[in-house]
Design a protein around this nucleic acid. Structure first.
Lengths: 338, 338
DNA sequence: TTGAAAGCGCTAACAT
DNA sequence: ATGTTAGCGCTTTCAA
């Protein structure tokens, strides 16, 4: 292994000088800089991050905790994250998985803290507000919760404005002429599902459209729930469905096909969430998607602010963006029976 | 930050003793062990991996390189990998993405080597054999290529037996009574596609079934290719399609639907690759899938063997496993026109 | 502009 | 069974 010492010897300088060249600190003459740089190239020197981390007390590593059961939203997130982390700050990404429960996720965070990560991103559904708060307070390393919102530590949360998402989705349907709009939404432990439902309620209220209880259905973010929901809706009249999650949407679309509805001719469907399937199901799915790059850059920026000790950090909620595909169509008002 | 020194002071011992307790090395009396353990607990001590890595020259980190464009096969892989890495060796996973080209991937590997990773897994399609060879030879850290096979460094490859996969898929169709079997396969840079095609050829030859050129189509692993393939096949008679990749399969199934074929009533379809969509498309897709856990444990084991300098490492190719779903049906021989 | 020296937190010989 | 000591590769004062 080539060390800074070897390079120093080759370039006829001391290790400190080499260090200065590498880190671009202090003043060094062009001559020595060139000599050192050449020595680095020729020797194939690669700096040892462990050694550097030991003295600078900062590893250049960003930790990321997620869960295997988070499906593949996290896969997209990871890509964006990795790209941003590398390009903006020359840092590395270290990965840890929880095990679908709070204890596992907390352990994962703690393992990452052992690595002297500079910051830890947590994309989890199971950590409770109190645990999150404790985690944040007992560590002076920035810990950022993605897609969660805890009012007691709002500076550490970068999340999506789920109410706005629900409102946006529902408004679109209303503006396209729909009045009989079914809603499939989430339930605990997914607070997002309830917030999205709240957005639905707001939009419906704004247009003074009564909500038909038989056209609402809640459950976990799973295809089965969407499937069951549509079967509950079937006897009733509806021209559109707002489904709060991609999992539910996939079940819903299958059920619609199976029951003989054409999408979007008979029923329009709008979903929330980025999902590869949005582009693959037939018809492709109009959805409110989360701008991942924005989420990630906001979170990275948040790390910086937290480190600088900025105290006036408010709530940051990213707004979802409408991605129109094929599953929603405009209907004339006359199509509305009620 | 609590260091080993603080703990030592608290427990009235020297740092070495604390280190011994932590690493469970050497002999220590039960009394001191207990005192030290208590001190660790009370102080909230967390070991500093950078410091440890510096002296042991081994970071406990496994590097993983992949590409954003590898879709989500890698997401599954990552989960399995993370789980195995953690449970088997108490190691961590560090992630790096290439940028869809060889240079980017090589850089990613090099960045990971800077981190004193103990080993690096590379799941890439772009690195050439010569680059791979050089990488392996100029580094004494185990570098393992997943899902690639380079004959000159076979000890560093843990891959899938693609020929066997193709053979397996085709045999299934033949055994279910199909004779007019179309094939959609891959092309450079995906060697796997060509190998899978080879498996198809072998199976067809074994049963002395002639291959109809109009029922074969090759291209990238993309839906569009599957779509085009089916449109080429349409004028001809076929009762089954063997599609070499999930991307192509998705395009194929859509095209089949669009052209009015029922799957599997009119046409059976078998795919290769693990893919969430396999369970989501209608009908669900029978496929040869790669046992990821086996792939990963084999790779981890390979690290160990390489470190131990075992020289007799042969070729390791994992065999794909048939996962039967709904897209293949048995047909009577009489259905065969030719 | 460069060098000398100390030390980050930890492990591992060696000594007791 | 435990302590002493040196040193991993690097950065960073301080001194020249």
């Amino acid at each position: 292994m080539v060390t800074i010492k070897d390079v120093a010897q080759m370039a006829n300088v001391t290790p400190s000088t080499v260090s200065r060249v590498i880190n671009n600190t202090g003043r060094i003459s062009d001559g020595t800089r060139l000599r050192v740089q050449q020595a680095i190239r020729e020797s194939g020197y690669r700096f040892n991050r462990s050694a550097r981390a030991l003295v600078t007390k900062s590893s250049g590593i960003i930790g990321f905790v997620t869960n295997p059961d988070d499906g593949f939203f996290y896969a997209n997130l990871l890509q964006v994250l990795s790209q941003c982390v590398l390009s903006q700050n020359q840092q590395r990404l270290m990965l840890e998985f929880g095990h679908g429960n709070e204890a596992g996720e907390l352990e994962a965070v703690n393992r990452l803290l052992s690595e002297s990560c500079e910051a830890v991103f947590v994309y989890s559904r199971h950590i409770s507000e109190s645990s999150a708060k404790q985690l944040v307070e007992t560590n002076n390393i920035p810990i950022i919760f993605l897609n969660r919102y805890f009012s007691s530590i709002r500076a550490n949360c970068v999340s999506v404005d789920n109410i706005a998402c629900g409102y946006l989705a529902t408004s679109l349907l209303i503006n396209k002429g729909h009045r009989n709009i079914a809603c499939i939404y989430g339930c605990s432990p997914y607070t997002s599902g309830i917030e999205r439902w709240e957005g639905y309620r707001l939009a419906m209220a704004e247009y003074a459209i009564p909500i038909n209880d038989q056209l609402t259905f809640s459950g976990l973010y799973e295809p089965q729930v969407g499937w069951d929901a549509v079967h509950q809706f079937q006897p009733h009249y509806f021209t559109a469905i707002f489904s709060c999650s991609s999992g539910q949407s996939m079940g819903a679309i299958n059920a619609l096909h199976q029951l003989g509805y054409r999408v979007p001719d008979d029923v329009s469907l709008i979903s929330i969430d980025n999902h590869v399937l949005n582009d693959y199901v037939r018809p492709t799915l109009t959805a409110i998607e989360i701008p991942l790059a924005k989420l990630v850059t906001t979170a990275l920026d948040r790390i910086r602010l937290l480190k600088e000790g900025v105290k006036t950090l408010g709530l940051t909620r990213i707004t979802g963006e409408l991605v129109e595909r094929e599953s929603v169509r405009e209907i004339g008002w006359e199509a509305d029976r009620e």
